[in-house]
Nucleic acid binder design. Structure first.
Lengths: 103, 103
DNA sequence: GCCGCATGTAACCATTTGCGTTACACTAGC
DNA sequence: GCTAGTGTAACGCAAATGGTTACATGCGGC
């Protein structure tokens, strides 16, 4: 059987969703960061942070993206989930957790 | 095969993951909240908040759960995602976002 | 009734995070 | 040189997060 850790670790470092967002939405539509931020109803700084991986896509931003670009909010959140999880797994060994299964 | 119920269920208020956690892990193993919190390496208050839907399961907690119960961290985060997204969609109308598709 | 255990939760505190505004530096194009 | 777009630091602020402590409740055993 294949454990969660194995599968997760097998994946290469997933790109932060902002990278995908820039290519798939901004570049593809010829939008500037400034324009996009105005359409999304957030500050330019906020969008910039996401695009450069210094902030994540939360539930509210995912809904904003779904409205502006006609995409699925869930898909953005799933990308974010993968990204966050990958980084959280890296700290797995630092967590003091006692196994409770098959003791 | 995919039932109608499955698809339809997506539109109903999903339970908070803590509810599932309590039934599937604590109750099933006869664990008290106090015991479980110690095993997970978090305070009783923190676990209690999750179990009663007053806090969500974040990436780190998901990894803790995966260690303690031998479950998939991703599955917990996915449940949390569904829960968060459902609530975020409720506020969709309050967001001032301009559509950029099919202009 | 009484007691001990588990539980939910409020109060308090410190740390962190998220977002907006403003300002500054860098870059590319005219 | 001027302008537009961009990244980002600095600031303020509101909200969230997690730990500790303490209190009230509910319940089983005695």
């Amino acid at each position: 059987m294949r454990t969660t850790t194995e599968v997760t670790m097998k994946m290469h470092n997933p790109p932060h969703p902002g990278e995908v967002l820039r290519k798939l939405c901004l570049d593809a539509m010829g939008l500037s960061v400034t324009e996009a931020s105005r359409s999304l109803g957030v500050s330019r700084k906020t969008l910039s942070a996401i695009l450069n991986g210094r902030a994540g896509i939360g539930p509210e931003m995912a809904v904003r993206l779904s409205i502006a670009f006609g995409t699925s909010a869930e898909s953005w959140l799933n990308q974010q989930l993968q990204y966050d999880l990958w980084h959280a797994e890296k700290g797995r060994k630092r967590l003091r957790v006692t196994r409770l299964t098959a003791a």
